[in-house]
Structure formats: C-alpha cells, structure tokens
Design a protein around this nucleic acid. Structure first.
Lengths: 149, 149
DNA sequence: GGTTCATGTAACTAACGATATTACATTTGA
DNA sequence: TCAAATGTAATATCGTTAGTTACATGAACC
C-alpha cells in the first residue's frame, strides 16, 4: 500500500523552519525531504491558509512559522493537511440489509474507532514545541553539550 | 487511498459459512460480497493453509469452517490474511542522520505503535463465536423472537 | 467412463491515490 | 529590468488492491 507521508513530511519541514533564523525556500525544504519543491509548496499551502506558516515571494523569500509552537499540536497539523485516512483497512461496500455484514462491521468499526481515538488523543498532547525540545536534546547529545540556538 | 478490505471480507464469508449447514461454494460466497469467486478462493486459501476452513471439490463441494469458533479471534484472522498494513500514514524514507527527522519520527512512531497495540488487543478479545452470537441477536430482533438455527 | 461442478492457481487488466514532474503565471526585491 | 521565489494547473509515474480470464485438477453423479 502507498502510505500517506504528508503529516510526517510537513512536521519535518516545520521543525527545520523552527530552527532557522531566516525564511527557507521550498527548494531548501524539498532537499531536506529528498523530494520536489512543488510538493512542499502544495502541502504547506494548507498550513498557510490556517495561519500556521507564511510565505513571501521574491529575493530572500521563503517560508517562516507564524504561530506559537506551544499552541499548535500534532493533531492540529494532521487536521491542517486534510485529516488523511488513518487506516489502510476498511469495510467493503455496505450492504445494510445483510445481518452478517452488520455484525462484522459493528465489531470492526468499534475496534478501529477506539484505536483512532487513542491516536488522536496522543497527537493532541504533543505540541510543536515538544518536538523542538526533543530535537534540541538530540542536538546537545550529539554535539556533547553545546546547545543549538 | 485504496483500503484493504480482506479482513472484513473474510469475516463476512466466515460468518455465512458458520450459519450454513452445508458447504458454500466460492460463487455463493462471492455473491454475498458482490465480488468475484476467484477473490474468495484466493483469500480463503490463506485460512485453509492454517486449518481454519477446508474446501472440497466436485458436486456438493465448497467451503466449511473446520475450527472451533470459540478458539479463533479476529486477530488470528487478521494474521491469517497476511497482517495487512494497519495505517494509511507513515514516515517518509528514513534519513537516519537528520536529527529533525529523528525527533519527528520518534513522536509519530510512538503514537502509531500505541494505537496499533490497542487495535490488536481489541481484535484479540473478539472470537468468531462472539460475531456469531451478535449475528443471532440481530436475527432474533429482526424476526421478532424466532431464533436462527 | 464421461459429464458436470467445484477448487487451485497463474497471468493479466483495471482502478485508485499518493507522489513526482513540467510548465508557466505572478509577485517581490535588488 | 532581471532574477528569485511562490501559486497552481495539468500530467505522468508508481505501487497496491481489486477484478478478470483462462485453464488444469479433482470429485461426485449418471
């Protein structure tokens, strides 16, 4: 199956933007992801409409974060990129009159909805600032005590 | 995304088999799913290799359940059909050296693994017999008290 | 024995969605 | 004015599930 990596991608570039003191172009961000600048502009366009980032054109332009990292959670970003389908599995076409299918779908749906609720709850507890803190911790470890600005 | 419905499908036909007193052909089972007999044979072949069902050829042949409904859980069936990918989302190609990606992937992976663990736990608590019981309950409700055999 | 009905399985096609690419208009700053 | 950047549409690529066709094999019934 072709897994949707937009959430992972956009978090990746957001964190790069959070640790840059100047705008980053879609070309630079794309190189971090080993992908195409158009994809970056496309996925960041969703965040721009919600005010999480802003873009400027022309020389010295690019993308900057325009929100409080403490206020935005991974669930907010998940929603911003279009709340992609969580599960790669699902029911077949519904045949509402088939009692067998009703019994099966009822059991599966309950299990999937519980798992999705837990996932959403977890994503809601993690802010972009938490990710940034974790990055700084990793940076300090790798550079033996010298903190990243 | 193209959602995998093999688990749902196979549970559906298993329950039909559980409530039939004679073998059901792949053609009959396919009509319950509005699909093709070959697909049914393909997905049931996995269960046959594990002894959950057995098939007989020729006149009067078809598929029957050959396991104890109380002993087999939805997780067993999930495993039998190949343990399909649970989530439709995932990380991009890994760049192990990028600390930003490490921080993002760490947070996402933890959330996804927790949700998957809950899903597996739920599927493990539901037996085929539970589904059968639920079907009978629905049957009685619809037929105003006359139980299905 | 021969016919019919069923599974077993390989090979191929179709459909779908995420990703990737190309192209070009628009805006901005030096 | 020119170069650099976004904005966006149109299109191609790729991988996976689902669906189809074809045919070999085996079993039951006459």
């Amino acid at each position: 199956m072709n897994r949707d990596s937009r959430l992972s991608s956009v978090l990746h570039v957001l964190l790069h933007m959070a640790h840059s003191d100047q705008p980053l172009t879609s070309g630079q961000l794309a190189s971090y992801l080993s992908t195409n600048p158009v994809l970056v502009r496309r996925v960041l366009a969703n965040l721009r409409e919600l005010g999480y980032v802003s873009a400027s054109k022309g020389h010295g332009g690019g993308w900057v974060i325009s929100c409080d990292l403490n206020e935005v959670t991974l669930h907010d970003i998940y929603t911003a990129v279009g709340a992609p389908t969580v599960f790669a599995m699902g029911n077949r076409v519904e045949h509402p009159e088939c009692l067998v299918e009703q019994a099966v779908n009822s059991a599966l749906n309950e299990a999937f909805l519980e798992a999705e609720a837990l996932l959403v709850a977890r994503l809601s507890t993690i802010s972009l600032a938490d990710l940034s803190t974790d990055f700084n911790r990793r940076y300090i470890v790798q550079h033996k005590g010298h903190a990243h600005v």
